Amino acid sequence: MRLPPTHPLAAGAPAFFGDWAELRETYPDAIRSDGMSAWAFLPLTAGGRTAGMCILAYDRPHRFTADERASLTALGGLIAQAFERARLYDIKHQFAQSLQSSLLPRTLPGIPGLEVVARYLPATPGMDIGGDFYDLIRLEETVAAAVIGDVQGHDVTAAALMGQVRTAIHAHATAGANPGEVLAHTNRLLTELAPDRFTSCLYISIDLARGMACVASAGHPPALLRRPGEPARMVASAPGLLLGVDPHTEYVTAQVALPPGSVLALYTDGLIEIPGHDIGEAIGDLAAGFAPSPRRPLTDLAESMIGPVAAVEHRADDIAVLLLRTTQP
């Protein structure tokens, strides 16, 4: 916006007026409506941008000394720098959130015999961005892979690396690698791409025709499983090293029966981590409260799982949840 030449901001420099007469000399059209008698106009300029103006008004005439003018000018500069830092932080945060959201799947493939619901909950505004991700990959007519993970760090780099991890996992999975091999191949790639960043990941291949699942984990919290007529339990799997630690790491797989009506819950640590609480106990509490029923939609189950965390005013980590229920294909 172009300012009129008579506007204080147009001068682009601090201005000090010790009384009303002095102000009228510079701005003859000025209107006195606040009852003040002396003013300091401090343009808030930083990085070549003027964000506004700070006006200090006095209720009686005031003589601005040279030291006072210098101090007030410095104060205006500090305020402008604070505004500029806040603006740049907001831009960076919004960019990171947009980047992360764009890298998550917009839709999940429809697979006969498998009901799927995913939820992603970002950290609250003002907190750092995370690197949580999830995916569902169709491998064959009755075979699919469920993936969930968390890239270390809370910045744009973490969000970008998350996209690379998802792409690598997808490529190796569709090439026919088993769960352990998918993690091993992705691990070797990560040690080359980002040797200072680690990623937890849980990969589960689901064979609907056989009613079996094959699980491999890279340091990720265990999935929960509720089979018909049984209480919920944690899916046992050998906890391999995080991706990106050792390029020679091998990942052991485990088999688990998955009859029709079984419900799997994959989640990231933001759902269970509470400062000062044992994570093992938190996972146990989550399993104890995991009670899906055949008549309850997975959407309702997902909302009930993230609802208590979503109500927290300040969340320092994002959350991803992926729920799967096997049905008759």
Score class of each variant (00 low, 15 high):
residue 115 E to T: 07
residue 140 E to N: 09
residue 174 T to V: 14
residue 324 L to V: 11
residue 289 G to W: 05
residue 213 A to F: 04
residue 254 A to R: 10
residue 172 H to T: 09
residue 143 V to W: 05
residue 200 S to L: 04
residue 60 R to W: 13
residue 44 L to Q: 00
residue 162 M to L: 03
residue 292 P to D: 07
residue 41 F to E: 00
residue 24 R to T: 10
residue 269 D to V: 11
residue 93 H to S: 12
residue 270 G to D: 12
residue 76 G to V: 05
residue 48 G to M: 04
residue 231 P to F: 07
residue 117 V to K: 11
residue 269 D to K: 08
residue 182 V to E: 06
residue 184 A to F: 02
residue 301 L to C: 04
residue 251 Y to V: 03
residue 204 I to M: 11
residue 70 A to Y: 00
residue 155 D to Q: 04
residue 113 G to A: 06
residue 121 L to Q: 10
residue 325 R to S: 07
residue 223 A to H: 02
residue 123 A to S: 13
residue 209 A to L: 07
residue 280 G to C: 11
residue 222 P to H: 01
residue 10 A to D: 07
residue 281 E to C: 10
residue 86 A to V: 04
residue 99 L to H: 03
residue 312 V to F: 04
residue 273 E to T: 04
residue 220 H to T: 06
residue 50 T to P: 09
residue 84 E to A: 08
residue 239 P to L: 14
residue 101 S to R: 14
residue 139 L to Q: 14
residue 283 I to T: 08
residue 61 P to N: 10
residue 168 A to G: 06
residue 127 M to L: 09
residue 193 L to N: 10
residue 222 P to F: 01
residue 217 S to E: 00
residue 82 A to K: 05
residue 28 P to G: 15
residue 325 R to Y: 05
residue 27 Y to G: 05
residue 123 A to N: 00
residue 139 L to E: 08
residue 133 F to G: 00
residue 60 R to D: 15
residue 42 L to D: 00
residue 305 M to R: 05
residue 312 V to H: 07
residue 259 P to Q: 09
residue 329 P to K: 11
residue 271 L to E: 12
residue 121 L to T: 08
residue 251 Y to H: 06
residue 105 P to H: 07
residue 128 D to N: 12
residue 215 V to P: 00
residue 81 Q to C: 11
residue 103 L to R: 10
residue 4 P to C: 14
residue 125 P to N: 08
residue 32 R to T: 03
residue 199 T to Y: 02
residue 267 Y to I: 05
residue 166 R to C: 13
residue 326 T to I: 06
residue 225 L to M: 03
residue 97 Q to R: 14
residue 50 T to A: 12
residue 161 L to F: 06
residue 231 P to R: 13
residue 71 S to N: 12
residue 56 L to K: 10
residue 168 A to K: 07
residue 253 T to R: 03
residue 294 P to Q: 11
residue 108 L to C: 08
residue 176 G to V: 06
